[in-house]
């Protein structure tokens, strides 16, 4: 019996969401009185032994460059086989893009119950019950898993990374990956930016900003805060901002510590993508904007006057000239 955590990476770096998954998996292992192990497919620039500090005893690695690109079918086979060989009874994924591709396949291979979008440690007081987001962040469901093997896919920014001491033992996977049927022919990454799903702070703009030429202050506020930028659906639809910045029901759902919405009215479909944010700040000149009902802090005012003053205040606070 052990807990096996899938370690996702991109461009040689382990994703922050996977550090959360490692911390979560280690806590699940402690709860079950067993050990936590990781599995990584492909190559990274990190010394994997250092992942021991997240409470991981052993890391299974297939250091094959061909595995740097995801093929869900290949990944699922390697992960499921490793789980079976190592006797894992709980598998943990991050519910990020790659996790969504792989976890359901692994669950089928292992005939394991699957919970995607978990937000808390399992309740093992009576069975095995995992809390997850449902209704696009408007409620939680408590899902009971009855199968001997269980797969949990953890929502990003739902579980704090916990660092301690320790080094993990690295074990080379003794399996030959099957040939990939999906060929990755191109990949683009917005470099130097914090990926939106991993960002702790997010500054987001809406139609109230009137046009793409006014995004300078949004980007500057994000920069001084160390935040990622996002936008509402009409903004992405009008191509003022790239599609991958669109948060909401039809865009991506995020759960940062701070979400600052500027010039966004807060339609229910937008809220569905951001309502898991820990603190919501709304800047809008319309006091009737529905977003204020979902906000923790707000300013009723003109963004073009308020935002530059916010930038000045952050600079002063952080001692940036």
């Amino acid at each position: 019996m052990s807990v096996l955590i899938f370690i996702d990476h991109s461009e040689g770096q382990i994703k922050k969401a996977s550090l959360e998954a490692l911390s979560y998996g280690a806590a699940v292992a402690a709860q079950l009185g067993t050990t936590a192990e990781g599995i990584i497919l492909g190559t990274v620039n990190t010394d994997l032994a250092t992942l021991g500090k997240y409470g991981i005893k052993k890391i299974h690695q297939a250091a094959d460059k061909a595995l740097d690109a995801l093929d869900a079918q290949v990944y699922a086979k390697l992960i499921a086989d490793t789980a079976t060989q190592s006797g894992a009874t709980v598998l943990v994924f991050s519910n990020n893009f790659n996790g969504k591709a792989v976890a359901p396949r692994v669950a089928v291979r292992l005939k394991a119950g699957l919970v995607t979008g978990a937000v808390a440690l399992p309740d093992t007081s009576n069975g095995f019950v995992v809390k997850k987001n449902v209704f696009s962040g408007k409620a939680f469901g408590h899902i009971g898993l009855t199968s001997p093997v269980k797969v949990i896919s953890l929502n990003p920014n739902s579980y704090a990374i916990k660092e301690g001491e320790g080094a993990a033992e690295i074990v080379t996977l003794s399996v030959t990956p099957p040939a990939a049927k999906v060929k990755v022919t191109a990949a683009t990454q917005a470099t130097g930016e914090v990926p939106l799903t991993e960002a702790e702070l997010v500054v987001s703009g809406g139609r109230g900003l009137k046009g793409p030429e006014n995004w300078g202050m949004i980007e500057e506020l994000a920069k001084v805060l160390g935040a990622a930028t996002a936008c509402s659906r009409p903004v992405a639809d009008a191509h003022w901002r790239p599609h991958h910045e669109h948060v909401g029901q039809t865009g991506i759902a995020i759960a940062p510590n701070l979400y600052i919405a500027i010039g966004i009215s807060g339609a229910i479909q937008h809220l569905a993508g951001v309502n898991r944010s820990k603190v919501i700040v709304v800047i809008n000149k319309d006091p009737e904007a529905p977003f204020f009902k979902a906000a923790d802090y707000g300013i009723v005012g003109d963004a073009f006057e308020v935002v530059p003053k916010m930038i000045e205040a952050v600079k002063k606070l952080k001692g940036i000239a």
């Binding site: 893009f97 999906v182 060929k183 022919t185 990949a187 683009t188 990926p195 991958h244």
Partner: peptide
């Protein structure tokens, strides 16, 4: 397909 902060072009039969 969408990835964290980017996208990827895949080909499959």
């Amino acid at each position: 397909r969408e990835t964290e902060g980017g996208e990827e072009t895949d080909e499959a039969s």
